[in-house]
Computed example of a mutant assay.
Amino acid sequence: MIRTLLVTLGLAAVTGAFAAAPAVVRIGVATQGYGDPPVFGGSPAATAQLQHRVEDALAPDGIKVQWLFFKGAGPAVNEALANHQIDFAYQGDLPAVLGRANGLKTKLLIESNVRTGVYLAVPPDSDIKTVKDLKGKRVAIFRGTNLQLVADNVLKVNGLSEKDLRVINLDDAASQAALASKGVDAVFLDFKLFKLQRQGLAKIIYASRDGGLQYTRQAHLLVLDDFERDHPDVVQKVVTSVVQAAQWSSEEPNRGALFTLWAKSGVPVESWESEYANQSLKDRSSPLLDPFIVARYQSVADDALRLNLIRQPVTVNGWFEPKYLDQALKTLKLENYWPRFDASGKPITS
């Protein structure tokens, strides 16, 4: 009787282990996808999706991968995380901080598209020449995204705040349409503005990255706490896949092929060339959780509190989980491949 019970319990344990393995891994992306099936560009995570690296890594285990895109960007991704509708998320720094402030239990695993600036664009015939000229103007900003905080800091250094503008909360597509139709006086946006400029529908008058790396945004891949706890082997394979994509995206001989690949997202090659002009692919595609990244996320949290975007202080201590990245770097022999930056954004030479 006891022997039979032990065998039964053993079978139940094995069955439970198999049942616990996910049939599908769901990755949320904080942008509206393009095409059918939808894809995106501009990051190693996007490269991983376009090259099917995660799918190839999990297929031997019978695990499928779903990439779910959110027009509502970071805030919509946070809602999906809260409802356990996705397991992983690719999003920016500010939305993730907002999620953490609201109690989302996640682990930040790896960076993907770092040190990215924002641009300020106006209609071609506008008399707006500088950021200071935005006072009292209708300005489109996608609130709740990592773009908002950079825009707010750019305004601050120019003696302004959102209260000095007539801010209109518009997503990426609506912002572009409003600018092209002159429904707004200016737009804070990303590389999508280069296409409008080439079409003669916009004029870029400011690039935040020119003001220093403190005016850049970071994006990452994170995972729900309980998924990471239950499926560390799956998490490792996902992270390793994105690190492989980051290496490929960092190789200068791949620059042309990379931009052609990303052009499948609907953003022309010329826009990617403009976005990455005079910049090292390694610097922008680094997956590292180095002192610069940790400092930037804490700064984002501090700024979010100062701007009343969150109600209580948020610390990044314990949020980053580097063991999967460290293992991937070791396995792929990439421990010294990417440059590391200190908290101020200067390369660490030793």
Rank of each mutant, 00 (worst) to 15 (best):
Q49H: 13
A101Y: 02
K137S: 04
K132L: 11
E111C: 13
L134M: 12
R143D: 14
G42P: 01
L68C: 01
W67Q: 04
G74S: 13
E111P: 08
L94T: 11
L68R: 01
Q49I: 11
A45N: 14
Q51W: 15
E79I: 14
D133W: 06
V54P: 03
T116C: 09
H84L: 01
R138S: 10
L109I: 06
F142L: 02
R53T: 13
D93I: 13
G99K: 04
L120H: 13
L94D: 07
V39W: 04
V118C: 08
P75A: 01
A101N: 03
R53A: 14
T130C: 09
A96H: 06
A45E: 13
N83A: 15
A48N: 07
F40N: 08
T116F: 06
L109A: 05
V114A: 04
V39Y: 05
Q91H: 08
K107V: 02
V39F: 05
V77C: 00
R138T: 08
V97N: 03
F70M: 09
F142V: 01
K71R: 15
R115P: 05
L104D: 05
N83I: 10
W67P: 03
V139C: 12
P123I: 06
G144S: 12
F70H: 12
A101W: 02
G144T: 11
R53S: 14
D93G: 12
D93H: 12
A73Y: 12
Q85R: 08
K107N: 13
F69M: 00
T116Q: 10
L109V: 04
L120Y: 13
Q49W: 08
G42Q: 03
L81S: 02
L68I: 06
N102F: 00
V139R: 08
G99R: 03
Y90C: 00
K71Q: 15
P38W: 02
A46K: 07
Y119L: 15
G62H: 04
K107Y: 07
I86L: 01
A101M: 06
Y119V: 09
T116S: 12
T106A: 09
V39K: 07
P123Q: 08
D93L: 12
F70E: 06
Q49V: 11
H52Q: 15
L94Y: 07
K105E: 13
Q91T: 09
G42E: 01
G99P: 06
K71M: 12
G136C: 09
F40S: 12
P75S: 01
V97S: 07
T116I: 10
G117F: 00
L50F: 06
S126E: 04
T116E: 09
L98H: 05
